[in-house]
Design a protein around this nucleic acid. Structure first.
Lengths: 180, 180
DNA sequence: GATAACGCGGATAAAACCTGTCTGCGTTTT
DNA sequence: AAAACGCAGACAGGTTTTATCCGCGTTATC
């Protein structure tokens, strides 16, 4: 179990697909099946992104999610905080005040200010967060765009269209697509 | 549950006491009771510090631990790695290769090199680790030394001596110290 | 207007991890 | 010989993460 969880990983992969989908909403089910992850689990992650103002939801048939902000305005830190809440890197238990010499009543000099150990951890957490805030969805999407062939985006669009068409008129769907 | 755990917190607090104890070994039991933490739990942490070459153990009666290196040569990162092993900030599940369009056989362009998302997380992890590597036990011990009154170190020494004496000749120990 | 797709929220369960306890063993000082 | 000490392993309880299921309200399509 890592500090930055699979939930964040799923979220960012989905958001990168949303970068490419523009104004067309993508449902969490389609995104889950496209990537081979659990649809019901993904469905629990998206509301957090919506509450954080990262995606916008549209309900009902043909509903789904679109990015609520330009991809340049969504950092990795935004996504981590949205999905995981304010999870601390380190949880100081104020052990400095428990020293037996204090007999349950620690003096002011021992408990004033931030614990010296805690301060080091907070500094490390800040370094991590600053680093995460330096990269946006647009940065990673651009990097992917340089690797993927042009045909990939067309194929992706076809796949999504295929799913929508298949649901609209099931009789016309190809048999191997209907199974599953 | 934080990424940097209580085990690390306990370890560093103990190591700071070892900075002050010099060549006199301190037992994990005494360190635990001094700080009001679980002796049996602390006893599971010290062997990891010993394997990492941070402390040196001496067995038998009057045994215990001393720093194996100067306090200036022990960074917070050393302690974190020793206690937690190589715990990753993020565990990439290579979701990029699972895209349904690849039909189970992802092309080279999709899986070559480090996943773009993973790369961002690795960069954040490096920033955190670099930050942790910048502070040593000596730094924090010095900061504490500036806050604590001189009498604290004498009192601490007396407390440790008292425990050793109490065990050496229980009849001479003060009644309230013998309890517990 | 019925149906089905969709987002939303809560209840639930399984797995992993962290904390903490206990026991037995070998070593060393007293 | 006894007691203090480090060491290793087994074990239990609590929390977090992952995952599933169900029912509800909303909306486009037939």
């Amino acid at each position: 179990m890592a500090h930055i969880t699979s939930s964040v990983e799923y979220a960012i992969h989905c958001l990168l697909y949303l970068v490419g989908s523009g104004d067309t909403p993508l449902s969490s089910r389609d995104l889950a099946e496209l990537q081979g992850v659990s649809p019901s689990f993904l469905a629990k992650i998206f509301p957090r992104l919506e509450k954080a103002g990262i995606v916008a939801a549209s309900e009902g048939v043909r509903g789904g999610y679109v990015l609520a902000r330009p991809a340049e305005a969504v950092t990795f830190l935004d996504v981590v905080d949205a999905v995981e809440g304010d999870k601390k890197l380190f949880d100081c238990q104020e052990i400095r005040g428990r020293c037996a010499l204090f007999e349950g009543d620690p003096p002011g000099w021992a408990t004033k200010g931030v614990c010296g150990i805690h301060a080091v951890m907070l500094s490390a957490e800040k370094a991590m967060r600053d680093s995460l805030a330096r990269t946006t969805l647009a940065d990673v999407a651009a990097g992917f765009g340089r690797k993927a062939p042009k045909s990939f985006y067309a194929d992706l669009s076809d796949w999504m269209d295929g799913r929508i068409r298949a649901r609209a008129s099931p009789r016309r769907a190809r048999p191997e697509e209907g199974a599953g």
